[in-house]
Design a protein around this nucleic acid. Structure first.
Length: 467
RNA sequence: GGCGACAUAGCCAAGUGGUAAGGCAGAGGACUGCAAAUCCUUUACUCCCCGGUUCAAAUCCGGGUGUCGCCUCCA
């Protein structure tokens, strides 16, 4: 079985073949750390986190690199607004990034390079491009000359001329071509700057990714990922720079997710219609946000609304419930004797096969979740059996946990203090119930409910879970 | 102007040639001291519209309508 991925550059699903056998290098464009990220950004982080985890699950040795852009106009402006330095600003929002992303269940990258820590390599690359006649220096500003790269426009499927005719007015008269873009920007008064052969200045946006990706992953990346609005100009420019310098393909597969919309409109910082994860997670379980993102195919646009999040929450609870139930039973059931169970175990293998099959097809998490819902229904029905098999319970649970490592769900959260308190109250309620003191029993149940604890009576005894 | 995506039940959403997955919400039933959870049944004679190809199309082709996006910083 092979994995198929949709490649932006060919606009087709292609068979996934890595540069080196069983190894995958992924570079994902990360955030500019001048603010909290919004849920549109979160979609990207979550989607590529799952893709990374899935490839690992399928036996690949995955190296995942995601940068932090910690120097650019936005960084400088925001630092000035807040009256702090650019590095201070970066530190603050890098920390916030890790907090928010962890809540969403997104793993840290293997490498999180920062632009400011790779300036010498960027200078080196720019020198190389100038030597090759693909870039030029105009009084301290260095530009990439787009016509010097024949395949320019290949990724965004726009010939250079079309890009020019559709382009909005560019007033920069230093450029030889309207689409030439900055590799190095001359220092303006008061701005952070680094030394270079062209004088003090700072790197342009695109060059950092060309440098940091190839430094950690080699000249040809297996996967270059990012948001759809990066296709042009960011990724087009990265590609031109990198291929212009190395003469080798920059990335085998370009993966871009769909937009996250709000009121049917793209959510973006510049439109001001965004909601930060920082804010949302005050009111909504971030796991729900994650589930919401995975409930549609990653390349389709999805619309955000509180109502949709509510729907997602109900769905996730259903899956969480079955996992809770399995864990509960796994600790209570006696060892199997002669319980027939082969049929159920075979069924489990079939569910696994289907899950892998749909995920292999361009990471169809929506279909993957559908498989889990079907298994959940089957499992719940099976658990009605007065004497379920421990082996079936354990193996089903193991399967949910197995896919949980891919999707980022079903992790165990322990809280011993809470456990003890809840157990105590449950014991009291059981006492009341035996005495048929329904009023007291219900009062205790309400008390637990206020603590966010839901009680469930089962044939195997009382079970509880967090809401 | 150029390029592209999408349009499937009340809502969300898979499905790219073989006769409509899954979830949420709703209704009815079972279970329960009452609940909760769960299970069963039920909700698209049909996939935006009009043509065409085909034995067969939600799926392919042509045309139309609508929504959104990229061509500028943005994930």
């Amino acid at each position: 079985m092979t994995i198929r991925v949709f490649n932006t550059i060919s606009r087709k699903k292609e068979e996934f073949v890595t540069v080196q056998d069983k190894k995958v290098g992924i570079y994902a464009c990360g955030p500019t750390v001048y603010d909290y990220f919004h849920i549109g950004n979160a979609r990207i982080f979550i989607v590529f986190d799952v893709i990374r985890r899935y490839l690992r699950y399928r036996g690949y040795d995955v190296t995942f690199v995601q940068n932090f852009t910690d120097i650019d106009d936005k960084m400088i402006n925001r630092a000035n607004e807040l009256g702090i330095t650019v590095p201070q600003l970066a530190d603050r929002f890098i920390q916030a990034y890790f907090e928010d992303v962890q809540a969403l269940g997104v793993e840290a990258a293997d490498v999180h390079p920062k632009a400011t820590e790779h300036i010498p390599e960027m200078v080196e690359l720019i020198v190389k491009l100038i030597d090759k006649g693909m870039a030029y220096n105009v009084e301290g500003d260095v530009y990439f000359h787009t016509p010097a790269f024949p395949n320019y426009g290949e990724l965004s499927h726009q010939p250079l001329d079309d890009l020019v005719s559709g382009a909005r007015v560019d007033v920069n008269e230093q450029k030889k071509h309207p689409l030439d873009f900055a590799l190095w920007k001359k220092q303006k008064p008061g701005e952070p700057a680094w030394d270079s052969p062209w004088g003090k200045g700072r790197p342009g946006w695109h060059i950092e990714c060309s440098v940091m990706s190839t430094k950690y992953l080699g000249d040809t990346l297996d996967i270059h990922a990012g948001g759809p609005d990066l296709i042009f100009p960011h990724h087009e420019n990265e590609k031109a720079q990198s291929e212009g310098a190395t003469g080798k393909p920059f990335a085998k597969y370009w993966l871009h997710a769909g937009y996250l919309n709000i009121n049917q409109e793209k959510m973006s910082k510049s439109l001001g219609n965004f909601m930060t994860v920082r804010e949302i997670r005050k009111h909504v379980d971030p796991q729900v946000v994650r589930f919401f993102m995975l409930s549609a195919h990653y390349r389709n646009p999805i619309n955000y609304s509180p109502d949709l999040l509510q729907q997602a929450q109900s769905g996730l609870e259903r899956l969480n419930n079955v996992v809770y139930n399995l864990r509960d039973l796994a600790g209570k059931l006696p060892a199997d004797t002669a319980v027939p169970r082969q049929e159920h175990l075979a069924q489990l293998d079939e569910y696994r096969r289907r899950f892998v099959e749909v995920m292999d097809d361009d990471f169809n998490t929506a279909d993957g979740l559908a498989v889990l819902f079907e298994l959940a229904r089957d499992t719940n029905a099976y658990l009605k059996n007065p004497a379920p098999s421990l082996e079936v319970v354990e193996k089903t649970l193991a399967f949910f946990e197995e896919v949980g490592t891919i999707l980022g769900f079903f992790a165990i959260q322990e809280d011993k203090e809470l456990d003890a308190r809840v157990d105590e109250l449950i014991a009291k309620r059981q006492q009341a119930r035996q005495e048929k003191d329904w009023a007291l029993a219900d009062a205790i149940r309400d008390e637990l409910n206020a603590l966010g604890i839901v009680l469930e009576d089962t044939p195997q005894g009382i079970r509880w879970r967090k809401k």
